Measured scan of single mutants.
Amino acid sequence: NQASVVANQLIPINTALTLVMMRSEVVTPVGIPADDIPRLVSMQVNRAVPLGTTLMPDMVKGYP
């Protein structure tokens, strides 16, 4: 099973992602692959992302 990117904390709308905000976890449904975490750094979320939420491609501005 492939690990996905999961919010490690509440991420407010328009926040630029940092490594501490994300963790990898095997979840269903599958979200953004954990391998993409380095690419996500400094990209902004377009909505508030609660703790434990799987990051989906449509939540991150400019992804992929």
Rank of each mutant, 00 (worst) to 15 (best):
T15I: 05
V5W: 02
I13M: 09
V41I: 13
A7G: 03
S4G: 05
D35P: 11
V41N: 04
T15H: 07
V60N: 00
L55E: 01
I13T: 11
Y63S: 05
I37G: 04
T15P: 02
L10T: 13
A34P: 05
S42K: 07
R39Y: 12
T15M: 10
A7F: 01
D36V: 10
V5Y: 00
N14V: 03
M22C: 03
R39G: 06
M21R: 00
I37C: 04
P38Q: 13
N1Y: 15
Q2P: 15
T18R: 08
S4W: 02
V5F: 00
Q9C: 05
A48F: 12
V6L: 09
S42M: 13
L40S: 00
V30F: 09
N14C: 06
P64V: 15
R39P: 03
T18M: 11
A7L: 03
L10D: 13
N8D: 12
T28C: 15
P29G: 03
P50M: 12
M21S: 04
G52R: 04
V45S: 06
P50F: 10
R39M: 13
I13L: 13
L40P: 00
P64I: 15
V60C: 02
V5D: 01
R39D: 05
A34Y: 07
T54Y: 00
L51A: 12
G62R: 09
V45F: 00
L55K: 00
V5N: 01
P33I: 12
K61N: 11
V30N: 13
V45K: 00
G62W: 08
E25F: 05
V49M: 05
L10A: 12
T54R: 03
P29Y: 03
L10W: 08
T18V: 09
Q9S: 08
Q2I: 10
Q2D: 15
M59P: 01
T28S: 08
M59C: 05
V26H: 08
D36F: 11
V20P: 10
P64R: 12
I32V: 12
Q2L: 14
A48H: 14
Q9P: 01
Q2F: 13
L55M: 12
V26C: 07
I11Y: 01
M56P: 02
R47M: 12
N14K: 06
A16R: 05
A7K: 02
T53L: 08
V49R: 02
S4D: 00
V6M: 04
D58R: 06
G62H: 15
